[in-house]
Design a protein around this nucleic acid. Structure first.
Lengths: 213, 213
DNA sequence: TTTTGTGAACGTGTTCACAGCG
DNA sequence: CGCTGTGAACACGTTCACAAAA
């Protein structure tokens, strides 16, 4: 299969969520135009995204909601369960554990780690917090979440890779080095705030349209 | 000024962080090549990004760390403080309040809201949680953070816009409608997990290289 | 000689527009 | 006639490569 771009994958996630909603509303079929409207993108984009994976629609009719939902689910790899380990039992780690939505989508947090002796041994959700040093291949983790302070992040990433995870979701505001075969996604809230700050700063000089250039 | 792309703004955030580190190490100057290496991008990209805003370097020498840091700080709008309101005093809201890093960068959480009577009146960090209904223009908020369940997100966004915010950071996994002049950034953790799931699913059939196409 | 700043070339993702089917 | 699937055109972001400056 041709390489799929990251924006396409992100849109597939959105389509999947819209299809869930639409299925709940009892709709049997949906057109690319309607799927696009809910998304704020063009219908051509929807059709192009889906065309990378096959022909799921019927000309003149649109897409069967239930069928497309099943296909997108399979494409995204949500037709199975994933073993996830969370490192860092602070605020972000706790927030992740508390959110039921991930379990519903097939992501099972099967282990939680921390280095603080004060936290190890306590429960967090359904898990008992374990010392980071006990993380090993035996946990058979497939994904790891880094919810530690910035300075520990690279070390934790290395430990996760050594333990055999193939995907990492990083919440620490730092670029991490991982082997090419390990997928890495970073959620950097500081960067999001700074992006907003930039946008708001640019938006000043609000009367430019009325003055000469 | 020409329109600046979102990837450029995100990289500026990174440059700013690297410049902080490098300043701490006592370096006086830094070349685009070194700035790029810390980032994992090309030096041409660094120079191009900076060139949108001016000429900050000296040929043959590189950039003065302290000077460039000041300029990037100004470009990102971090040479002032921003009044931020957080809506939703659950796990994500609490995590944000607990993280000191935002305050250090100029983002002051000056109000926290929730709709739950059980939470209103309690402290969260330095703030007393207020009823959502008391959110008004009088708060003079410039940015709002949506840390509520998905179903409340659009309603909260409308209230924030009515209260005069010009930027919104949304943690609810839903596309929101806001006026064009309001900047919106969404952090969708479900989408990040699904993106990892997709990447790991694609990575299967690991022996493809040894078989005929 | 080193390194910036930048037009040109390139590559990638989005949109157009229409043939092809239902 | 309606809507999909898709090559072609387009837009935009990245990289190249080199003149200019220190």
């Amino acid at each position: 299969m041709a390489k799929i771009s990251e924006p396409t994958v992100r849109r597939l996630s959105h389509y999947y969520r819209v299809l869930d909603e639409v299925a709940g509303e009892g709709q049997r079929t949906i057109s690319s135009r309607i799927l696009a409207e809910r998304e704020g993108i063009t219908s051509a984009q929807v059709r192009k995204d889906l065309s990378y994976f096959g022909s799921f629609g019927r000309r003149g009719l649109g897409y069967n909601v239930e069928h497309l939902r099943t296909e997108v689910r399979r494409i995204l790899g949500l037709d199975r369960r994933w073993r996830v380990g969370v490192v860092g039992a602070g605020h972000i780690g706790s927030a992740l554990l508390a959110y039921r939505g991930f379990g519903d989508q097939g992501f099972d947090v099967v282990a939680v780690f921390d280095t603080s002796a004060a936290r190890v041994g306590h429960r967090l959700g359904e898990q008992v917090i374990r010392d980071m040093a006990t993380l090993s291949e035996a946990d058979a983790l497939e994904m790891g979440v880094i919810a530690t302070p910035m300075r520990a992040a690279q070390e934790v990433a290395d430990a996760l890779v050594a333990a055999g995870v193939r995907g990492i979701l990083n919440f620490a505001p730092r670029k991490l080095r991982v082997p090419r075969e390990v997928a890495l996604r970073t959620v950097d809230m500081t960067m999001e705030f700074e992006s907003l700050s930039f946008a708001l700063s640019q938006a000043r000089t609000p009367r430019r349209r009325r003055t000469a250039e």
